[in-house]
Design a protein around this nucleic acid. Structure first.
Lengths: 220, 220
DNA sequence: TATTATTTTTAGTTTTACCTAAATTTTATT
DNA sequence: AATAAAATTTAGGTAAAACTAAAAATAATA
């Protein structure tokens, strides 16, 4: 079947919201989509009619299997294009999101397969988010929140959950990017801030708020 | 200013039609767009209001300077994406048109500038059509129609004007592609067909209809 | 020139994706 | 449990881009 850009965007937003909450409600989807609850209700009916959604009025909703499949296809395209923009066209990683929002709706399957191959079948996008494969399977990495890392342990940054321009600007300042190696020197229980040492940099202190959004992994 | 995909497609079609005829009429544009004359009239009013068109009802129309500028931007994007699809993603040249039709509407200027640079600032797309530069300037190549080439002269294929799947399939059969070197051995005045010799191939005969759509150049 | 044919435009609909305002259902609170 | 608050849906409307059918303007022809 064939879906509009708008339908794909709704499905993608529902997918992201239900990752956190299991089931999604009208108001939060309206907020996420920068639209009105009434518009969401309209679209929910369409998506239900297309069997992308489990939805009973006033009861919240979540994606059907078809819906999840579509969501993963869109997420896959988005992240492959982000990878292309950063690794091939050398965009800064904090500039690529809005462009990938457009590119993710280009319909050709063959395009995505060839792009993936050209990029070398990457598993993670430039923000560290996993890229679903063509069957919708998502690669997993044993990641740990930076605020939970034991002191002195050498870890590598693998993803950042808050990807606002403000956050990415801060990380750039601290010279933290994906793949950056660092250690936690100590934790201050007063405000949850951390003293860290980024490889080849002087130690510095980051707030709990920043730490909570940074995920790392280490060889076990 | 900001334009819809539909507006961009109309502008592009008008541009192509007026290359041949100078001024364009409603019916031919409707045919080109696979739409109805009434729909064209509706859009003409919008495009005129946006100052992209010189248009008086019942009198035909052509692009304004703004319209030409927009058309060249869209053509530029289309051809750069075609180049990308063929040269980087290794698509067959007869498969890329519909995909480029979608990609040409991605809005980011920076994307196109980086893409162009990554591709090495190509001047001609895989069909031999010139790629306008960021100022809308179109590179020119001294091309000659294959049916007008003097006998025995060694020439190089530089573009193909009919880019239907059928034509491209034929050319593939004859092992003719952009950059192919060939000679005309003789012309048959009976039906205008040509005997040609493609480099490293046995001589073969092509119809006048094919020859009229193939353009070549040679070092002067 | 009068008439016919063609081209183009107008008028009125449809679909998609939004909107506001008002009604309804669910949830929370006294 | 009754009422207030919040969330959700319905009703009715708009704008973009298409459509059909009919009217109007232009071009072609007897």
């Amino acid at each position: 079947m064939n879906f509009t850009t708008s339908e794909e965007n709704y499905i993608k937003s529902i997918y992201h919201l239900q990752q956190e909450t299991g089931t999604v409600n009208t108001n939060s989807l309206a907020a996420e989509m920068h639209t009105r609850p009434a518009s969401v209700t309209d679209m929910l009916k369409k998506l239900k009619a297309k069997k992308l959604l489990q939805y009973e009025r006033y009861k919240g909703f979540k994606l059907s299997d078809n819906g999840k499949k579509l969501a993963l296809e869109v997420v896959r395209k988005h992240r492959l294009w982000e990878y292309f923009l950063v690794e091939i066209l050398e965009f800064d990683w904090d500039k690529v999101h809005p462009i990938a929002e457009e590119l993710e709706h280009i319909s050709s399957d063959e395009l995505i397969q060839r792009l993936e191959k050209f990029l070398g079948n990457p598993s993670f996008d430039p923000h560290g988010d996993p890229i679903p494969d063509r069957n919708g399977k998502i690669p997993v990495l044993n990641q740990l929140n930076l605020s939970e890392v034991p002191d002195k342990k050498a870890v590598t940054v693998s993803s950042v959950s808050n990807q606002t321009a403000q956050m990415l600007e801060m990380l750039k300042h601290y010279k933290i990017a994906l793949g950056t190696q660092l250690q936690v020197l100590q934790k201050f229980s007063f405000d949850g801030s951390l003293e860290i040492k980024v490889l080849k940099q002087s130690p510095c202190i980051i707030s709990e708020q920043v730490a909570k959004n940074v995920f790392v992994h280490y060889e076990s």
